[in-house]
Amino acid sequence: MFGELEGTGFEVIEPEFKACFIGHARVERLWTGARWSEGPAWFAAGRYLVWSDIPNNRMLRWDETDGSVSVFRAPSSNSNGNTVDTQGRLVTCEHLTRRVTRTEHDGSITVLASHFDGKRLNSPNDVVVKSDGSIWFTDPSYGIMMDYEGDRAESEIGACHVYRIDPDTGTVETVTTDFVKPNGLAFSADETELFIADTGGTHQKDGPAHIRKFQVGADGKSLTGGAVFATCTNGFFDGFRLDRDGRIWTSAADGVHCLDPQGRLIGKIHIPEFVANVCFGGRKLNRLFITGTTSLYSVYLNVNGIKR
């Protein structure tokens, strides 16, 4: 292990992990000062990253051109997960308002989902956009379990599901309903597989701390399978991304874990804080941005993220 920052560096568990990082590259702390950093999203056209500081009810913006950090939006309705849609617009999960929104190019906000079957959602957590324009999001109850990241309330739905928003009709429908606390999610490069984390062990004794793998049907929206793909060895898998070769780079209590396409843990990037989420960015999508509790980190890798 090595690194310019204390507590950071690469840990090789399987030999093939050595090819994933650059020998002289170091983990960089780009900024610190948050309470719980989450939901990084890379905007290629503007060369900036947006992420959430959930308890502080704000979204932050890091500028690649000069390294500056500014407030992107405050209040942010205790925003959590973010992503960019096929038209370069920001899609956000909001705990406080219990909805999924889209920020239009003119800055106005469109509500994409707030209810299912006439009942309010719990607290949308993480979100991805498929190439057909459909929006997939998880809806655990973390934002309504306490006042720290939203408003304490009872669940109207009474369960925690994963949903899909139809790109043509805007209809919200469930895609899987057998999760305890569905959390991060991501598609494979060819979108034939969907990976979803379950962090139910945070509030349920011996509850899940794993990622499950589903097969996406020919209709582009139905799911089958759902077997456990990998179980976290330190804390919980929260947010994650896949690279172009099918490896998963996922958050964990001790940093970022790298899983090979079979779900085997092959290496780690140690971070001195709990990591909540990651995303690939930079011009070549070879820079991994890491949201770790109070801070934003990054490291250049010898792999590339998926370009949608």
Rank of each mutant, 00 (worst) to 15 (best):
T83A: 05
C93P: 11
S37P: 02
A113H: 05
L30H: 02
C20L: 15
F116G: 01
N56D: 14
A34R: 00
R102W: 09
G88T: 08
V69I: 12
V91E: 09
Y48D: 13
R73Y: 10
S108A: 13
T65E: 06
Y48H: 15
L30Y: 02
G39R: 00
R29S: 11
D66G: 00
T92S: 15
T92A: 15
G88S: 10
A45Y: 00
D85P: 09
C93Y: 11
A74D: 05
R26Y: 07
H95Y: 04
R73T: 11
E28T: 10
V69T: 12
P55M: 08
Q87E: 15
V91L: 07
G81H: 08
T110P: 00
V50S: 02
S68G: 12
M59T: 07
G67F: 00
T83H: 03
V27A: 07
W42H: 08
T110E: 15
A41I: 04
S52F: 03
D85T: 05
R58C: 12
E38T: 01
F72V: 02
I22Q: 13
V84C: 12
S70G: 10
W62M: 02
D117Q: 15
R61C: 14
G67A: 04
R58W: 08
A34G: 15
D85Y: 04
I22D: 13
R73A: 14
G46V: 00
W62G: 01
S79V: 03
T83W: 05
G81A: 09
R35Q: 14
